[in-house]
């Protein structure tokens, strides 16, 4: 695989040349934050990047500190270097109406369909229809050119599209719109639309990135997800290891602490030197914390090894203290660029 040739220092190079980036991860891994930082990093060379949210949670607007996003592509950030990030909160119902109008010119029938329950059916109940509407919106943005359909050779409207996708547990079904929809429609217009969407998702210029933590469950889901995505014939991009905390202990210190062999006396001497009260009792209390930390570091290393076994390039992002705000987002963007992320 070509990713390996670049070595571990520049995992982000798997992004080069890709036009659609699909970001997934177990709940709680910071998927939206990673997708936002990725969009900013891709825009850092002056590009125009669209960040698409599909879960209706308005996570993107919260993150960038802007009012809730409408169903409309809107510039939300300009990146040093002249690039800009646009955002869209894709909504299945609005996408359906748009689709009906674009292909059938029947927007006015929307009301009747709503009253019949047809819209409810298409956007919340029918398997795959909701997904194909949402992925359809993102893939349309990938294909869109300046000047519209009349200028098929015009430049692309966006240099890249980043999708904040559903969690890992549902990503295979979400992206495999063809087979999802096939149960309902083996032929016909829905199927044709699904085929067009699938063409973009299967393209060699699409990457599926996984966000994980150095914990067992998210890592297990990442490994299962990578296997599933590969089986579908889609291209796995990076594993983004999020919220990485540095170990504060030396190797020897870690080994001793994990084994529960902490030199309490030395610890207490240090605490006395720092003029802290009750140094002996404090040393016992702190030693327990150090042991718990050492056990966690040991587990994290094992988990990291298991993630590395997938063969996907791994990009580390640090834990940002005090929650993710503007400054944190900028720091994460820099870390991505340093690790080779660019258009």
């Amino acid at each position: 695989m070509s990713e390996h040739e670049h070595g571990p220092r520049e995992p982000g190079r798997t992004c080069a040349g890709a036009r659609l980036h699909i970001v997934t991860g177990k709940g709680g891994t910071g998927k939206t934050t990673v997708a936002a930082a990725l969009a900013r990093a891709l825009a850092s060379d002056g590009g125009r990047v669209l960040l698409v949210e599909v879960e209706g949670r308005q996570g993107v607007s919260t993150l960038f500190g802007v009012p809730p996003l409408p169903y409309e592509e809107r510039e939300i950030d300009s990146v040093p270097g002249g690039g800009s990030v646009f955002a869209l909160a894709a909504d299945a119902e609005a996408a359906l109406m748009e689709y009906l109008e674009m292909f059938y010119g029947i927007r006015r029938a929307g009301q009747a369909l709503t009253r019949l329950g047809a819209v409810d059916f298409a956007t919340t109940i029918a398997p795959g229809l909701r997904d194909v509407l949402l992925t359809g919106k993102a893939t349309e943005a990938v294909r869109r050119r300046e000047g519209g359909r009349r200028r098929p050779e015009g430049p692309f409207r966006y240099d890249a599209v980043v999708m904040d996708a559903p969690p890992t547990g549902r990503i295979g079904r979400f992206l495999n719109v063809n087979s999802e929809v096939a149960g309902l429609a083996r032929v016909g217009p829905i199927r044709n639309h699904a085929d067009r969407v699938m063409e973009v998702i299967r393209s060699e210029r699409t990457r599926v990135h996984f966000v994980s933590l150095l914990e067992e469950m998210p890592a297990q889901e990442t490994r299962d997800g990578i296997a599933e995505i590969s089986d579908l014939g889609l291209r796995v991009g990076m594993v983004v290891v999020n919220m990485v905390r540095p170990s504060l202990l030396s190797e020897a210190g870690l080994a001793a602490a994990a084994a529960g062999e902490i030199d309490l006396e030395a610890l207490a001497t240090g605490l006395k030197a720092a003029r802290l009260d009750d140094a002996d009792a404090l040393s016992v209390s702190l030693a327990r914390e150090v042991t718990a930390h050492a056990l966690r570091v040991r587990l994290e290393r094992r988990v990291r090894g298991e993630l590395a076994d997938t063969g996907a390039p791994m990009l580390d992002l640090p834990l940002v203290e005090g929650g993710v705000g503007r400054a944190a987002l900028e720091a994460l963007t820099r870390r991505m660029i340093e690790q080779g992320v660019r258009l």
Binding site: L249, S250, G270, E289, V290, H293
Partner: peptide, 11 residues
């Protein structure tokens, strides 16, 4: 001084 105490306090 006392690197292991420094680490424990930071933790």
């Amino acid at each position: 001084e006392h690197p292991e105490t420094v680490a424990a306090l930071r933790l």
